[in-house]
Amino acid sequence: MGDSPANAPGAAARGRSRARARQCAQLRGARSAHWRPRASARACGDDSPPIVDRPPAGGARPTLTRMQPREATDTRTIEATGKGVVRAKPDLAVLKLGVTTQAEQPAEAVDQNAKRMSKVIAAVKAQGIPDTAIQTSELQLDRVTKWDEDLQTDVLVGYRATNVITVRSPVDTAVKVFDAGVAAGANTAGGLAFAVNDEKKYRREALAQATKVAVEDIEAVAKALGVNLAAVVQAEVVEAIEPPLYESQFFAMDHELAATPIVPGQLEITSRVRVRYTIKAP
């Protein structure tokens, strides 16, 4: 017996409800492999955003992902650079001894230079300096010219050969090495530098000091501003300053030399550190 006209609307509604239930079941079964329209998904009680759009041509199934909310970042920071200085007594001297010779022919200049430098190296080794502490740092041959007034041009008058060695010596032996090299024939010097063998130890102390100074400065600024610090977001070593180097030029003399006075003093090992803190949100 069919539905009466009065019951027709109710039957139609039940039919639509059953059709919608079948559609939702199909959508739920296929949600991990196919696209689902926004309207159909919400009609089934699923208010989450659609996972993907229509699959690309060719039937390839897309990778399903769900959007994540982007976290807000606080970029308010306070930055400061601290300086640390550690003083140390040098225990290592680095000095340069050179020989310069000049002759009319290049081979002659080089030969004279080689013989003279051999004597200098032998004298340095005689002071207890090992081969590993001696290194050739410069070897050069130059033309020597002289201005001729009559010709109004430079005229070649000879050749100059230069050979320089770098010697690493304990500070208490440096004077003997220096004077022995000069007495043996060294007639030029590039410079003298003082250093410490365990430089890393003093460098780390300077870095610790610099970091402490930077943090204390940041805390002082935060207190003056009435804000609270959150966390360190950056700590960077700014630069490293090498030990001081002073130049000394001299010439060997024929008469007996007095001991050359040197004053090592103290080295200043300096480090700088840049630190940045974030500020807590109010």
Rank of each mutant, 00 (worst) to 15 (best):
P56H: 03
Q105I: 05
K83R: 14
P69S: 14
K115F: 05
P69E: 13
A122E: 14
V110F: 00
R61N: 03
A109F: 01
K96G: 15
A109N: 05
K89W: 01
E71G: 10
Q102S: 09
G84L: 10
T63F: 05
T100L: 15
L97Q: 11
N113A: 07
A107W: 07
R66P: 01
L92C: 02
G82Q: 06
A93D: 05
Q112V: 01
G82R: 04
A80F: 04
V85Q: 08
V94I: 15
M117C: 10
T65F: 15
E79G: 07
P62T: 04
P56W: 03
R61W: 04
V94A: 07
L95C: 08
D53P: 04
K83G: 00
A123E: 04
V110Q: 12
L92Q: 14
T81D: 02
G59Y: 01
E71F: 10
R54K: 14
G59N: 12
G98W: 08
E104G: 11
E79T: 11
K125A: 03
R76G: 08
A88N: 00
K115T: 12
K83L: 08
A72Y: 06
D111V: 01
R61F: 02
P55M: 10
V52L: 04
A93S: 13
Q105G: 07
G82P: 00
V110G: 04
